[in-house]
Simulated assay, not measured.
Amino acid sequence: MGFFDGYNVATSGMSAQRTRINVVSANIANAKTTHTAEGGPYKKQQVVFEDVLVANSKKRTNSNDIEVTNSPLSELSLRGVGVKKIIQTDAKPVLRYDPTHPDANEKGYVAYPDINPVVEMVDLIEAMRSYEANVTAFNTHRGIDTKTLDIIAGN
């Protein structure tokens, strides 16, 4: 493990959670949007994460020079998390009767996005807590490195 690996993992987690926070915020902001540029109501979006792996320059071995794992992934090392893609859900719109609304159909129903603000708020809180956990991991790693450098310097 390299000196900066802990920082890289934590910052990639913060970046991924920031994207998630932005997407959930957009869902909440558009919970009542009945007409978009594409036509129809807003469609809820979700973030899909992926692990970010890179190849190791040497084989992982223990003190007896025996390979640690027979896994085909043994040559890969975790470097963090990334955003694979942002997808739109296929949820059907919710129809509400409001004949005075400009987007009402001929029967007086308006198509609203199927977005539950309570569920979105819970998702937002979870993303914020995950972001905070990554900040804590980053700060802990920094504290360990600072103490290590103090010991090496003889302070």
Rank of each mutant, 00 (worst) to 15 (best):
E50K: 15
V110R: 04
G80D: 06
N64V: 08
P93L: 02
Q88P: 03
E126K: 15
A127P: 03
V52I: 14
E126Q: 13
A37E: 08
L78P: 09
S130F: 00
V52P: 02
L95T: 02
D51I: 13
P117E: 03
I28G: 09
K59I: 00
D90T: 11
G82N: 13
E50T: 13
I86T: 13
I28T: 13
V83Q: 08
K43C: 03
K44I: 10
V118P: 04
V122K: 12
K43G: 01
D98S: 06
N56W: 00
L78T: 09
E120T: 12
T33P: 11
Q45Y: 09
N62H: 07
D103A: 14
I86E: 01
D65Y: 11
T69V: 00
N56V: 05
A133H: 14
I125V: 15
L124T: 01
E126H: 12
K107T: 08
E67F: 05
R60M: 00
V68F: 04
D98C: 03
Y42W: 11
T100M: 10
E75H: 10
A29C: 09
K92P: 00
N27L: 02
R79V: 04
Y112D: 05
N30L: 01
K107N: 13
H35R: 15
S77L: 09
V48R: 09
G40H: 02
E50Y: 07
V94I: 05
E126Y: 10
D123A: 15
A104D: 05
P113F: 01
I87P: 09
L78Y: 11
A104G: 06
N105L: 08
A29S: 10
V94A: 06
L53Q: 11
G39A: 06
K43V: 05
E106H: 07
P72Q: 04
V81P: 03
M121I: 12
D123P: 14
A55Y: 07
N62V: 11
V94K: 08
G80W: 02
N70K: 15
K107R: 14
A127S: 15
L73C: 01
S57N: 15
G40R: 11
L53W: 10
K84G: 04
P102L: 10
T61S: 14
E126P: 00
V119W: 07
E67Y: 04
N105C: 02
F49R: 14
F49H: 12
Y131C: 01
L78E: 09
I28P: 03
A111H: 10
V47F: 10
N56C: 05
E106D: 10
S77A: 07
Q46M: 14
N56P: 04
V118E: 08
K32D: 06
Q45P: 05
K107L: 11
A111N: 14
V83H: 11
I115W: 11
T33Y: 07
D114A: 10
I28N: 01
R96F: 02
E106W: 02
K59D: 04
P113I: 02
P93W: 07
N30P: 07
L73M: 08
V48G: 04
T100Q: 04
R79T: 06
H35D: 14
A127K: 14
E132W: 08
S74D: 12
